[in-house]
Design a protein around this nucleic acid. Structure first.
Lengths: 245, 245
DNA sequence: GAGTGGTCTAGACCACGAG
DNA sequence: TCGTGGTCTAGACCACTCA
């Protein structure tokens, strides 16, 4: 491994991280103001803010505009469970979810994802879930209009509600393909999720197809990168091992 | 969706992005120097660099210290294929891979991942792969010493070599669990992968277990977030649908 | 040595939250 | 209104690349 030049922000981040992990600053507590911290470490405010950005990306610190920087409770991590399975994590049950339903027509990338022609009728479900005060995740789910449920599923976009609907398809569900990327949030996403526009988000594109090869759902999920994981489990049965590859 | 305040860096990033997508700046070309761009947009250099950081995170621009900012060829994306399947992408065949083998003993998080007791003997394979000039990915693979292959597999850590080894296990491979996170690189990773220390990486933790429940491999993969995707495909067979959940 | 990006400074001004 | 974080400025100085 190559030796890197130690930068001031990492030295400061290491120091504050130590204070958090040794319990000198406890979970939920507020850090001193950025001006105080900057003068304490004798650096300028941008440099100190860079140090905090490191801790923010690690999920250790949560910045709240106008209030301060807080040590995050480490338990409040978001786990996305892939493969269409419902998550076992009971923490996700404490979500407050808002849904907005819009009828629109496919175009561009969306049409390509769903493998439908442009201007094909779709229904969009826009989910925004909160965990207590803080925003949790953002999801846009697109379904061909004729497959859209009549009732609005007031559930988390990856919880039992959606999974149950997919399990009851007439041609059964055959395949779920999920693509995970790290990218910066759009300015709108940063405001909605209340995260810094320089903090990466985990963007998951999920496409579900039935046995006929028809795409029955395309989902664009955005999770704050400082506290989100995506977990995928693949089972290799003995009789499958010969057929893979 | 909430309306966000347009920031200067996004306005500039949008403008340069347009110039790239309309072909006014072609792939592989160098952008004007940051000083020139800053004076052209009448902003300070940090603000202009923030704008470039947006484009860098999108994978549109590659920064090379001492040379300039270049428009990236969009085809050079890295696709990690999960589930232990080998990637079909032929692009991955053009990788140059270096391997370093180290013998060590488990401790802390590593012991927990492999579900072995501390100081249990392990073999570490440190992979660094390059695609032409530019670093491609970094991988640390840990295997219990008694399962480590005698020869050094000079292959990409997620290519056929590893998959073949896992397929030939005595107790057969039963499950692969992959956890995907977005985080900032450590300073060492930033230097090794030649990326900015403020650019998120895709960190994948992969744990493979055999039918006896023993962990046969733990892999820590780091991919540059500006050009890496991870794809997971789950097949839902008809007879499986009743047993899932 | 000339030109480039990387880091940092010491402020200014604006936006948000709570009283 | 006051204290907080968010954005931006106009430089300085260092590190890297290439001739």
């Amino acid at each position: 491994m190559i030796q890197a030049v130690p930068s001031r922000r990492h030295v400061i981040a290491d120091d504050i991280r130590n204070q958090i992990s040794t319990g000198r600053i406890k979970a939920g507590e507020r850090l001193p103001s950025e001006a105080q911290l900057a003068s304490h470490y004798t650096v300028s405010t941008p440099t100190l803010r860079n140090a905090l950005a490191v801790l923010e990306a690690e999920g250790l610190v949560e910045k709240i505009h106008g209030k301060g920087n807080f040590v995050r409770h480490p338990l409040h991590r978001i786990t996305y469970v892939g493969g269409g399975r419902t998550p076992e994590t009971a923490a996700n049950a404490a979500l407050r979810v808002s849904v907005r339903v819009t009828k629109l027509r496919a175009r561009g990338q969306l049409a390509a994802l769903l493998r439908v022609s442009a201007s094909s009728p779709l229904t969009e479900f826009l989910y925004l879930s909160h965990e207590g005060e803080s925003p949790h995740s953002l999801a846009r789910i697109y379904v061909p209009r004729d497959l859209a449920p009549a009732d609005v599923p007031a559930e988390s976009p990856w919880s039992a509600g959606v999974a149950a609907r997919l399990a009851q398809l007439r041609p059964p569900l055959a395949e779920i393909r999920e693509r995970v990327r790290a990218r910066l949030p759009t300015p709108e996403e940063a405001v909605t999720l209340r995260i810094s526009s320089t903090l990466a988000v985990l963007a998951i594109t999920r496409v579900a197809a039935d046995t006929a090869g028809r795409v029955v759902e395309a989902a664009l999920l955005v999770l704050p990168g400082d506290r989100a994981d995506a977990v995928f489990t693949t089972h290799h049965r003995t009789e499958e091992r010969g057929t893979e590859g």
